[in-house]
Computed example of a mutant assay.
Amino acid sequence: MRHAPMRFAVILGLATLLPSSPAHADDACYKKAQSQAELTECSVNDLKQVDDTLNKLYKQMESRLKGDDDTKKLLIEAQKKWVAFRDAECTLSTVRTAGGSINAMNFNSCAAGLTQARVKDFQTYLDCGKQSGDQDGDDCAIPQAK
């Protein structure tokens, strides 16, 4: 029974090697990875892919806000604060691996998951009015494309 805590630590350590983002852009990358550095590179690629999608949607939102400087400022402020939140949240969620070789992968996986959720939020903004029956989008923060 004396060895149980060690076995638990090993199992817990192995579990942290599994990618934690909800869906990976390239599962094949993780399957063929042979080292922590390669797993980290997979997580970098996942984050980059979802971040690229987020940036495209953000540009669409900015474009729809031409001539509405007040709302555009709110969008910019919200996004800056969201990035700060995402980074702080992922720093907190990976605090126990800080300084370890797995930390970057864990952080990237966390950031990719939160960024994917933000992509869904942005898509909701862009689709506002379509689902609610508000065809002209008067109640939408981001106006419908004309």
Rank of each mutant, 00 (worst) to 15 (best):
L54M: 06
L14W: 07
F8T: 08
T53N: 09
F122W: 04
R118V: 09
Y30S: 09
S20K: 03
M105Y: 06
Q135G: 11
Q131T: 06
S35F: 09
Q49W: 13
T94K: 00
G129M: 02
E77R: 00
R118M: 05
T124S: 12
T97Y: 11
K73L: 00
D51L: 15
Q123T: 12
L57P: 14
D51A: 02
D87G: 07
K130Y: 04
T115R: 01
I11W: 11
L18E: 14
C42F: 14
Q36L: 10
D46Y: 02
K80I: 09
H24P: 05
G100L: 03
L92V: 09
F8A: 12
S132W: 12
D134R: 06
K66D: 13
L92R: 03
L65I: 06
H3W: 15
K72A: 12
R118T: 01
D68Y: 00
S109N: 08
A117S: 14
T71S: 12
K66C: 06
Q123N: 07
D52K: 10
T71Q: 05
S109P: 10
V50A: 07
S63P: 03
C128E: 03
D27E: 10
S109W: 01
V44C: 04
T124P: 02
N108R: 02
R86L: 07
C42R: 08
Q135A: 09
K80R: 14
I102C: 03
Y125T: 05
V119K: 00
